[in-house]
Simulated assay, not measured.
Amino acid sequence: MSFTNPPSPLAPAVYLVGAGPGDPDLLTVKAQRLIAQADVVVVANSLVPPAILAGVRPDAEVVRTANQTLETIVPLMIDRVRAGRSVVRLQSGDPSLYSAIHEQIEALVAADIPFEVVPGISAFQAAAAHLGVELTVPGGVQTIILTRIGGRTQVPEPEALATLAAHQASLCLYLSARHVTTAQAQLLTHYPPDTPVAVCYRLGWPDERVVVVPLSEMAQVTAAEDLIRTTLYVISPALKAIGGRSRLYHPEHDHLFRPQQP
């Protein structure tokens, strides 16, 4: 991103920025601006591709955290802000989903460090765009569930995958490729075997792969492609032709800006 005039310096703070699924073109304008202005960029480099860092200032400090824990990452950010520097913490996708910002925010608040959260595009949105579909189709499905299966991080019992599958909604399954056989079995307790599933690997990265298969083949395809991480599954009736039309633009639907014609 280029600026006609030099940008104003960022206030010393931690900016928790969603880097999107991987495509630099899907960064928000605000994210681009913050990356271009930051004194320090702390990046989850195992999940954020190098191309996202193209706009970083040449003199900025770049800290890659793939091999670090929060016990080293958070004190570093606190130290840099107390030294009067601005810190961008680049998180993959959107910070509101599976990003571990909750514990970072708690530590920043305890240390009296100002912070700001900047949203990003999530993988499920990039998947729908790639597939050219809407995940909420009138007469077919009107709910989207974002979830994961329990692994080393357990999910609460009321959120068990088989329980959520009962809704037969558009279900977007994160962080579950290592447990895909179990996930498939639980989904099949409610979804028909021919329900379409988009298996999405490294969305937005140069080696992105997306394939749509029946639910009954989800585990088989995952194993055949050796997909053990950075994989999203979108299980949805909306991935096949189910008809339906929104009332919003229907000629019989009147509202404030389109009163009913006599």
Rank of each mutant, 00 (worst) to 15 (best):
L47V: 05
H253T: 14
V62W: 12
Y174H: 13
Q184I: 11
V199N: 08
S176A: 15
V211Q: 15
A31C: 10
V197D: 06
P75F: 00
A183P: 08
S86Q: 11
M218P: 09
S170E: 11
V180E: 07
L34A: 07
I145C: 01
W205N: 02
P75Q: 02
E159N: 15
S8G: 03
A110R: 12
I113Q: 02
I121Q: 09
V137G: 01
R148K: 14
T163Q: 15
S122F: 06
E61R: 15
E252V: 00
Q142Y: 04
P259V: 08
A123T: 09
G150H: 00
I78P: 04
L90C: 04
Q104V: 14
V17H: 02
V88S: 01
G244A: 04
R152V: 09
V41H: 05
A51M: 08
A183M: 11
L239H: 11
I101V: 14
V213K: 04
G18Q: 08
L227E: 13
P9G: 04
V199L: 15
P214K: 05
P156L: 14
V133A: 06
G20R: 02
I242E: 05
Q91H: 15
G120K: 08
V63G: 04
A60K: 11
E134W: 09
T195W: 08
V41N: 01
E116Y: 05
A36I: 02
V56G: 03
G84V: 07
Y191S: 00
D59F: 03
P138V: 09
L97W: 05
L164K: 11
L76D: 10
A44S: 06
V117N: 10
P12V: 00
V234W: 03
Q125T: 10
I121L: 14
T222P: 06
E116C: 08
F3Y: 07
V63P: 05
Q261W: 06
I113E: 06
V43A: 11
F124Q: 05
I78L: 00
D25Q: 12
R80P: 01
V109P: 01
I78G: 00
V81G: 02
G93T: 03
C200K: 04
V117L: 07
H179M: 11
L70S: 12
P206N: 12
P193C: 13
I144K: 03
V155K: 05
V137H: 03
A160M: 13
L34T: 04
V43E: 04
V40R: 11
I145K: 00
R82Q: 14
Q37N: 04
E134R: 12
Y98R: 00
G244E: 10
R148W: 03
T143R: 00
E71L: 10
Y249L: 12
D112G: 07
H179L: 15
R202E: 08
L187G: 05
I144F: 02
P196M: 09
M77W: 02
A183H: 10
C200I: 12
A219T: 08
P95W: 01
L164I: 09
A160E: 04
L131S: 06
A126E: 05
P193L: 09
